[in-house]
Write a protein that binds this DNA or RNA. Structure first.
Length: 426
DNA sequence: TCTGGGGTCCTAGGACCC
DNA sequence: TCTGGGGTCCTAGGACCC
């Protein structure tokens, strides 16, 4: 029986690569993608990295750098990235059913026992994905998910390995672990990284060799799992069918400061209508809701105001109008005049499966329930066919002066009939 | 004017119950 | 007189991930 071989397949500079698939003239050129609201930099092509464009930097601080180097700048286009992700994942699933889609641009695969060995399969995966989707990927292989992650990072760092690195076949694993900064280990973030650095623990190797009790005390059992995984003992299983989400949220920073309760209510109505559509798409009902608002600091130097409120519908629901009126009520208790609001959001809680719901005698369906259900189904069907905001509740407003900025969004090449790429002859 | 959005898990502490 | 031990549920806060 072969030793377990987890692979982590990770798309290189995913969002930037997606933009380039449909803009071939950008091949070899620096490309960056901005966060929602065109706020900060969330993806960079290799060329942009080489020019020193920093990850996470506010976009307005980089304008000069963008102009000087002719960097192509895009607003984020999640319709495009989501669709490209689905294509990559479908390609990966041809290789093994033992696969976990871990994020929009990453998947774990169990390559144990496949013909030719894990590394050979990984090279085939790489070639196939780039040929079928245009997206380049790197593959890290290891006996645990944490080591596969680490190997993936190393594969990206060392171009000479051809985008595939197998931890188990590495000639000097201790040296490899010693070369990885401790805060780059999967599961160890900035805070714990700083705490460890303060104690002279700087590398993955040094962390691996710490006393277990110390790790448990300072980093909880999750830290212990990470440590065991670095030692080669698998603690984190492949999750082929991720469990239903426990919360769903929709929130946005505004394109400009919002000062009135009416505008806040409109924005919240829009977020509710988005998150309710997600809820129905997953076949879930919400039994609670949290609404929150955040302001900018004001001129007097008062710290920003942040408020949140809970509300619950009479019975678990996925009905947009019910949820909107709930959010509007919650806002009533939350709103303070005289502030400039920066952001608001809605979180749906206590999610349960619609199918599994047992109706009690007390919450027998109201007469309008069946009509509501048909209305929501019709709304979702129209929006699925014609685009996300074709139909929206009037409470969301029409002009949306607070809407987020997206000045450089590329077309939704793959998901919108009006934005298909056009091929020209000759 | 100016720094995203969407998730999960763990722990501690308080309320409440038997 | 004078105040156990164990369990559950909820919330807030902090940490992590992409």
């Amino acid at each position: 029986m072969a030793a377990t071989a987890f692979a982590l397949v990770d798309c290189n500079n995913f969002y930037a690569s997606c933009e380039r698939v449909f803009a071939p003239h950008l091949a070899g050129r620096p490309v960056v993608v901005l966060s929602n609201n065109d706020g900060c930099i969330i993806a960079r092509s290799a060329e942009a990295k080489a020019l020193g464009v920093p990850m996470g930097q506010p976009a307005f601080q980089c304008r000069e750098l963008f102009a000087r180097h002719g960097i192509a700048v895009f607003s984020s286009n999640y319709a495009l990235y989501g669709d490209m992700s689905a294509r990559v994942m479908a390609t990966l699933s041809r290789f093994t059913p033992a696969m976990e889609v871990y994020s929009i641009d990453e998947a774990f695969l169990d390559l144990t026992g496949l013909p030719g060995g894990a590394a050979k399969q990984a090279r085939r995966i790489r070639e196939t994905v780039v040929r079928w989707t245009g997206i380049p990927v790197s593959v890290g292989i290891g006996p645990t998910k944490t080591l596969a992650k680490l190997a993936n990072r190393a594969a990206k760092k060392h171009p000479d390995c051809g985008g595939v690195l197998d931890f188990s076949a590495h000639p000097d694993p201790d040296a490899l672990l010693a070369s990885v900064p401790v805060e780059d280990v999967w599961g160890i973030g900035r805070r714990h990284g700083a705490m460890l650095a303060g104690r002279g623990v700087l590398s993955a190797r040094a962390f691996r060799d710490l006393p277990r009790e110390f790790v448990r005390k300072r980093m909880t059992v999750q830290g212990v799992h990470t440590q065991l995984e670095l030692r080669g003992f698998s603690c984190i299983d492949l999750d082929k069918a991720p469990p239903a989400p426990k919360t769903l949220m929709s929130s946005r920073s505004f394109g400009r400061a919002v000062t009135t309760k009416d505008e806040l209510a409109e924005a919240l109505a829009e977020y509710v209508s988005r998150v309710a559509a997600k809820l129905r798409h997953r076949g879930l009902l919400a039994s609670g809701m949290q609404v929150y608002v955040q302001t900018y600091a004001d001129a007097s130097g008062r710290p920003p105001y942040a408020g949140s409120a809970f509300a619950a519908p009479p019975a678990p629901t996925d009905h947009t109008a019910t949820l909107i009126s709930l959010a509007t009520q919650a806002l009533g208790g939350l709103f303070r005049p005289g502030w400039r609001y920066k952001k608001a959001g809605v979180i749906l809680l206590g999610l349960e499966s619609r199918a599994g719901r047992q109706l009690s005698l007390l919450d027998a369906p109201a007469p309008e329930a069946a009509r509501n259900e048909r209305l929501m189904a019709a709304l979702d069907a129209v929006n699925a066919k014609w685009g996300q905001d074709t139909l929206a509740p009037a409470a969301c407003g029409i002009t949306r002066p607070w809407a987020m900025r997206q000045e450089k969004r590329s077309p939704r090449y793959t998901t919108d009939w009006d934005e298909l790429p056009v091929a020209r002859a000759g």
